[in-house]
Amino acid sequence: MTEQRPPFPPFTAESAEQKVRAAEDAWNSRDPERVALAYTEDSEWRNRDVFLSGRPEIVEFLRAKWQRELDYRLRKELWAFTGNRIAVRFEYEWRTDQNRWFRSYGNENWEFDENGLMRRRYASINDFSIAAAERRIAR
């Protein structure tokens, strides 16, 4: 059986927003296996300066990420869409094991296959040090 992850392309404003909300919810679960199910088996990623290929690498990457980035909390916003592509802007907050807080800002470009699975994800991200009192993304 072919895996499917509705909604399917071509996207409308409503279905693109559904994809963004689903991604935000999955990433906020901090469950690498759950997140990886939204991607094709051979999905290509660029995350900052890291290049990944396939679900096993995605799961490994996310496991390590959430061991470093504690209390991770994310917000995504639909930026643009067309056909089988969606662009989002995002911000997330996290802390180190020394309780130093950061807010990370970025943009992602997503490309989906006909079954609604993401086959490409390219993310550009910048980190900004913040005080704990400056946090604005609630748990």
Rank of each mutant, 00 (worst) to 15 (best):
R95M: 09
F128V: 13
G116R: 04
P9F: 02
E14D: 07
P10E: 01
S124D: 14
D25W: 01
W110F: 14
M1W: 04
N126E: 13
A13S: 06
D25T: 12
E14K: 07
E69G: 06
A22P: 03
P9R: 01
P32A: 07
W101C: 04
R73H: 10
G106D: 10
E41D: 11
N47L: 14
P56D: 04
R119G: 06
L52W: 08
Y39R: 02
I130G: 06
E17G: 03
R135C: 12
F128E: 15
A16D: 02
I86R: 00
S53K: 15
E91C: 11
W79M: 07
M1F: 05
E93L: 07
Q4D: 07
L70G: 01
G106E: 09
E69V: 00
F51W: 09
N28H: 08
P6K: 02
R95W: 06
A38W: 00
R89V: 14
S29H: 05
E111L: 09
I137V: 11
N84W: 00
R75I: 06
A23L: 13
R34I: 04
V20G: 08
R21W: 01
V20K: 04
R46Y: 00
Q18W: 01
E24T: 02
R100C: 02
N109M: 15
S124T: 13
E24Q: 12
K65V: 10
V50A: 15
D97P: 03
F51G: 10
R34L: 13
Q67F: 11
R30L: 11
W27A: 06
T96R: 06
F11R: 01
P10F: 02
G54W: 07
D25H: 09
N99F: 10
K19Y: 06
L78W: 00
G83I: 01
A16K: 02
R135T: 11
F90V: 07
D25A: 13
R55C: 04
Q67L: 06
A36F: 03
W110V: 05
P7M: 02
A138G: 13
W110E: 12
A13I: 00
I125E: 15
E134R: 05
W94C: 08
F112H: 09
R73A: 12
T96G: 05
E114H: 10
F11W: 00
T82I: 02
A22S: 10
T82C: 03
D71T: 00
R34N: 06
R139S: 12
A13C: 00
N47W: 15
E111S: 12
S129D: 14
S129P: 13
V88A: 12
L78T: 02
S129A: 15
V20W: 06
M118V: 12
R63D: 11
G106T: 08
G106I: 09
R120Y: 09
R68P: 00
E57Q: 14
M118E: 10
F90I: 07
W101K: 01
V20I: 06
S29A: 10
R121K: 11
L52Q: 06
S104L: 06
A64H: 12
G83Q: 00
F81A: 02
N99Y: 10
E24M: 08
I58E: 15
R63E: 13
D42E: 07
N109I: 14
